[in-house]
């Protein structure tokens, strides 16, 4: 039996972090969290998540930089699916995210129900 899909959530907003952890745990994912880019990178290396949900703007280094570093790390194989959440959601942000290696770009506020549904699709796609 394959292990639970592991999701790492990286966000510097504690309430968003907690909310996402509760939401995703309820949907049966194995959830770990990190509160900034640096912490996030350590957790990616240690936990080897299948999916990384990250905020665009964070201290230490931001979501774009975190994604670049994940993509540059050859030890991370297979690479996780990276989903970026941002409050901005402008076209240039999406472009910047794509350049950094982000697989998917989502704007806040998002519907938790739709978010969970999307993760289920991603999970199905990777299975």
């Amino acid at each position: 039996m394959s292990r639970l899909t592991r999701i790492l959530v990286v966000d510097d907003e504690p309430h968003i972090l907690r909310m996402l952890k509760v939401l995703l745990s309820k949907h049966g994912y194995d959830v770990t969290v990190a509160i900034d880019g640096g912490d996030g990178l350590q957790r990616v290396r240690a936990d080897r998540p299948d999916i990384v949900v990250l905020d665009a703007n964070m201290p230490v280094f931001d979501g774009y930089e975190l994604c670049r570093r994940i993509r540059d790390d050859e030890s991370l194989s297979p690479q996780p699916y990276v989903l970026m959440l941002t409050a901005g959601g402008q076209a240039k942000d999406a472009e910047k995210a794509a350049t950094a290696g982000v697989d998917e770009f989502m704007t806040k506020p998002f519907s938790p129900v739709q978010f969970a549904a999307r993760l289920a699709e991603i999970q199905a796609g990777r299975a």
Binding site: H15, R18, M19, K21, V22, L23, P109, F110, S111, P112
Partner: peptide, 18 residues
């Protein structure tokens, strides 16, 4: 308690977004 609050927050978040 925090999880319950997060759950409630999720519900509000869903409502606002919807």
């Amino acid at each position: 308690e925090l999880d319950a609050m997060a759950d409630e927050l999720l519900a509000r978040y869903e409502e606002i977004t919807t």
